[in-house]
């Protein structure tokens, strides 16, 4: 008979595979057997290690919270494993949408006027102007094609890896996470239009660089990253 619950050694510790074709009842029964077996073996060997790293992978099955709790309870009671993560090959529709929003670049074509706030759950690309008194706030990075005269706040939740790419012309205010920079240069040189990238450097200071340095500053900028697995 093919086993539905298998334990496999991995680099960090162990991986518990739950067969997605089996019923949940079958899984829990087999898990009980496996845990009992392990406990007996543990007693014999005199092994005393605690908090052994365990990842649980449920294949194409999505475990709900109750099921996860049940499994966690069983494992914690009967073994010395400590569960680091629940993974599966699938995810809920809501979760996928949420993730998609978080990692995709939202595009807006509009003028942000005084008193208006344009907000984005992830990265945002604005094609249009931000007037004085208007602000654009994103949890991720901000890219602006057009003039920025108001406030641009990237990484509003504290993400210091967020960047702002814009034409930092005059009179704008730049914020990344909790760093603030006011653009006040009035000399002729700074009045020239030049697109730059604002970012938080290694010393946690908001600084500016030319666009060709963007890839060096933030190597993963053009990749869809993060957010899906905890």
């Amino acid at each position: 008979m093919k086993q539905n619950v298998t334990l496999k050694g991995i680099k960090e510790g162990f991986l518990l595979n739950l067969n997605d074709a089996a019923s949940f009842e079958e899984l829990t029964n087999e898990l009980d057997e496996l845990l009992d077996h392990l406990r007996a073996e543990r007693k014999l060997s005199g092994e005393t290690r605690k908090d052994i790293h365990l990842e649980i992978h449920s294949g194409d099955r999505l475990l709900n919270t109750e099921q996860k709790e049940l499994l966690s309870k069983k494992i914690e009671e009967k073994s010395h494993f400590s569960i680091k993560s629940f993974d599966s090959n699938v995810l809920t529709y809501e979760c996928a949408i949420e993730w998609q929003k978080k990692v995709s670049l939202e595009m807006k074509v509009q003028t942000v006027r005084s008193g208006q706030i344009l907000e984005a759950p992830g990265d945002i690309l604005l094609i249009g102007k931000v007037h004085p008194g208007g602000s654009i706030r994103a949890k991720g990075s901000i890219f602006i094609i057009g003039e920025l005269h108001g406030v641009a706040h990237a990484g509003v939740d504290g993400d210091t890896s967020a960047v702002i790419v814009a034409d930092f012309l005059t009179k704008a205010q730049i914020r990344i996470a909790d760093n603030v920079e006011v653009i006040e240069n009035e000399d002729e040189e700074s009045k020239k239009s030049k697109v730059e990238v604002a970012y938080i450097n290694d010393l946690h200071i908001l600084s500016f660089e030319t666009l060709d340095r963007l890839k060096k500053i933030q190597p993963s900028i053009d990749k869809v990253t993060g957010g899906l697995f905890e």
């Binding site: 008193g115 004085p132 008194g133 009179k171 704008a172 205010q173 603030v180 006011v182 006040e184």
Partner: peptide
């Protein structure tokens, strides 16, 4: 509130946090 101007006249508009 909602139609502020004093900051503009004083030239402090972009320093508001």
């Amino acid at each position: 509130i909602g139609l502020r101007n004093l900051d503009v006249i004083l030239g402090l508009e972009n320093r508001i946090i």
